[in-house]
Nucleic acid binder design. Sequence first.
DNA 1: GTCGAAGCGGAGCGGTTGCTCCTCTTGAAG
DNA 2: CTTCAAGAGGAGCAACCGCTCCGCTTCGAC
Lengths: 199, 199
Amino acid sequence: MATDPSTRRPLRADAERNRAAIIEAATEVLAEQGSAVDVREIAQRSGVGMGTLYRHFPTKEDLLGTILDREFTAWACAARRAADSTDDPRAALEGFYEHALATQACHRAVVEAYGNTWSGPSPDCTGLLHPVLDDLRARAQDAGVLRADVTTGDLALLLATLSHTVQLVGDHCAWVWRRQLRIALDGLGAVHGAPLPTA
Amino acid sequence: MATDPSTRRPLRADAERNRAAIIEAATEVLAEQGSAVDVREIAQRSGVGMGTLYRHFPTKEDLLGTILDREFTAWACAARRAADSTDDPRAALEGFYEHALATQACHRAVVEAYGNTWSGPSPDCTGLLHPVLDDLRARAQDAGVLRADVTTGDLALLLATLSHTVQLVGDHCAWVWRRQLRIALDGLGAVHGAPLPTA
DNA sequence: GTCGAAGCGGAGCGGTTGCTCCTCTTGAAG
DNA sequence: CTTCAAGAGGAGCAACCGCTCCGCTTCGAC
């Protein structure tokens, strides 16, 4: 592992400025174009050279990971705050998905990373989200507005699925994906339906 | 457009053999690795050289289109036959999704192409599928087992979405995506739920 | 069997992309 | 102000990928 950042000598002022510029530009570009962008474009938009970029982030993957962690963490914290500030369990659950899809799902790279959560190694992203979803699930099930056999994992996978849907249709004509969301939410609330299949 | 294949002089025997080998190998590779594969690998697995491959398919896109059309058409026809051979509208609809996801969704390139159906120009793929879905929808709604405000477009988008989900979780542990399917199907059947949002 | 056209193969071209190397610049400690 | 290590920058390398070009092979009509 790398040296602990807090014990490492602080960056020079210009280096700090450049690092911030890179992060800002990269966030923008990755949201727009997904993780397949040319690193040169990120450097250009940051106003720094390739050398500088690679000094701060030794690998494209490092850069990607940093951006993704920042975005994901900020959003997961907002989601937790929103969930905690609502008493109605159903409204909390539905508001969570609505907000998640309306904001986070516009970030192409984030949605792509979501896919890797299942097929590849997951960063601590999932670790942040899981307790929020788990809380929402428990409250909704206690209130009887969520079928009893739905797991937190189901909710997480549903989020990934719907995020991809938003990517497909774009954020304009949001009503298209909102219809899919409504269908899924009604399915989650179908407390009298057939039991969900298991292993 | 190209010359009508039926009026074109028939291929030499070896050329015909090679063409078939290319199609077979390409179908395999595209199903496994998606449309991003190196053309060299397709050539290698077919046992032909690059020149031969590009003689039969002047562009990677041409090859892709050919394979996708074959796969998609074969599957859409099977789906129509299955739908026609079932009297129960609910069973027909649910069987359609079950079969679609269990088979077609394992073909990576096909699922990827599905995404482009919404964001880019669509081949006649959609044209083949639409009437089948439309029929399934009408029958189910007449029988009162499908909420009245669901459109054929909703069903098509749901198919694309769930196909992607299957890709995420893989065909092993199929029960994971089957749970998502169950939730969606129950949502579709929620005839007393809130109306779906519109434009 | 002969021969010409159709077909074959694969080295290689041009473009892209992740990353490095090395020279020049600049912040900040003394 | 001086000094020098930390930092900046961008040309260029290596790998990859879609596609082409051209000399060689093979089919099949006669």
